[in-house]
Nucleic acid binder design. Structure first.
Length: 421
DNA sequence: TCTGGGGTCCTAGGACCC
DNA sequence: TCTGGGGTCCTAGGACCC
């Protein structure tokens, strides 16, 4: 049996933990650049705010209902997430952290599953202050479905267990096919043309049809819904296959110099991620694009990939390569909205093969990067930078107008509790 | 004026090899 | 004049997830 633990309105709930006045009020959290709504408290859902809607489109709604708006604060959410996961690990050695706000917990051989679920819920609320729901089923996909029901129907008290045939049937009938884990917009549309409306309908489709139109991924989903486990717990995190850092700009950027400053900043971040993985990248891709929503302006999107002579984790080398790629994709006369870098061919550092014609002093780079990481870890990631990242005010920087403090990870942001004299 | 970011997996088709 | 078959690897694109 598997339990799926999912935090309710996670980002919005995080904001509430250190700011209890938000309790009972509609709260939303925005994507990077204060673009779209990516998390909503229950109250925000009730007043009709849709997931993913750009904030500028709901100005009126926000004003009318006094909705509290926050920029996303991943430092805060990441820290609270870890605390939640640590609690779950007390219940089972098998915890797969699936995303920042979700984890699968292996419950093999355990009894009193519903009570265990309730206990998890209470512990997380008591110790971190985050509300969660728990769904339990024979397969991961059924656990997902159970979780959805637990969220949707108050009667479950936040914990839903599917442990027999009757409950499974009932749960599948109550779930629309587009709400099944792994069925996205495209497949949902195709299925609706066949009058497949619920998860239960989907399980009755001929397997050949599913295989043909939805590949073996679809077949696997079907089997999982029928109660045959096909997706096992992923307990050791696999090595990443690609590492990407990209951002939209607060406003359009026209010059190569400014684009380069932004790109160099992303490359530096990418380098840090690569070194955290104790890995090297074999190839680097740079991409840049204009604002795809502005149909009234000329559109352009360029991308180019280059192999490195020797796989590397040195920000300096990556930066040099990226700068070169940018020069080649840059076209004058466009307003750029986004730029990014992707590292491919990620291999463990100790498996890197050298090259006879390699002219780089790798030991030197290595100690330089070690020093740089140490300083930046201690004094903030912008303490030591590349000159090419630019100085002074950055026209391209993110918009973050509603950022909350990092209550749990920064000394200066810690709450001060005043006792009444 | 203002529309996110970071991933994974699968398939088809082309290049290439013997 | 006649021009195979089997296999691997790589890439681009699609679909999906949170």
């Amino acid at each position: 049996m598997y339990a799926l633990v999912d935090c309710n309105s996670f980002y919005a709930s995080c904001e509430r933990v250190f700011n209890p006045q938000l309790e009972g009020l509609p709260v939303v959290v925005l994507s990077n650049n204060d673009g779209c709504v990516v998390a909503r408290s229950a109250e925000a859902k009730t007043v009709g705010i849709q997931m993913g809607v750009p904030i500028f489109k709901i100005k009126e709604l926000v004003k009318r209902h006094d909705v509290r708006v926050f920029s996303s604060n991943y430092t805060l959410y990441g820290d609270l997430s870890q605390r939640v996961m640590n609690i779950l690990k007390r219940y089972s050695p098998d915890v797969e952290v699936y995303s920042i706000d979700e984890a699968f917990v292996g419950m093999k051989g355990m009894a009193h599953l519903e009570e265990l679920g309730k206990s998890m819920k209470e512990a997380v609320m008591r110790e971190v202050g985050i509300p969660i729901c728990v769904g339990i089923g024979k397969t991961k996909t059924l656990a997902k479905i159970a979780n959805r029901l637990a969220k949707k129907h108050k009667g479950f008290g936040g914990v839903c267990l599917i442990d027999d045939e009757i409950k499974r049937q009932k749960a599948l009938e109550l779930t629309s096919v587009e709400d099944v884990w792994g069925i996205g917009r495209k497949h949902a549309k195709r299925l609706s043309l066949l009058s497949v409306r619920t998860a239960s309908d989907f399980t009755h489709l001929p397997a050949q049809w599913v295989k043909k139109h939805m590949s073996i991924v679809g077949l696997r989903m079907q089997r999982e819904l029928q109660g045959y486990s096909c997706i096992s717990l992923d307990l050791v995190r696999e090595r990443k296959k690609s590492i990407c850092v990209s951002r939209s700009f607060g406003k359009d950027i026209h010059t190569l110099d400014e684009l380069k400053e932004a790109l160099m900043t992303h490359v530096m971040q990418c380098g840090i991620k690569i070194r955290e993985e104790k890995a090297c990248a074999s190839a680097l891709q740079v991409f840049a694009s204009t604002n795809r929503f502005r149909h009234d302006r000329p559109q352009y999107s360029g991308q180019l990939t280059a192999n490195l002579l020797v796989p590397s984790d040195s920000s300096l080398e990556l930066a040099k390569c990226a700068a070169n790629l940018l020069q080649r994709i840059f076209k004058e006369g466009y307003g750029y909205k986004k730029i990014g870098v992707v590292a491919y061919g990620i291999i463990p550092k100790n498996e890197v093969t050298g090259n006879l014609f390699d002219a780089v002093d790798r030991d030197k780079h290595e100690s330089l990067m070690r020093g740089l990481d140490m300083i930046n870890a201690k004094f903030g990631k912008s303490c030591v930078q590349l000159a090419s990242q630019g100085f002074g005010k950055k026209a391209w920087s993110l918009r973050q107008e509603h950022l909350s403090p990092c209550y749990s990870t920064s000394w200066k942001d810690m709450l001060v509790i005043k006792a009444d004299a």
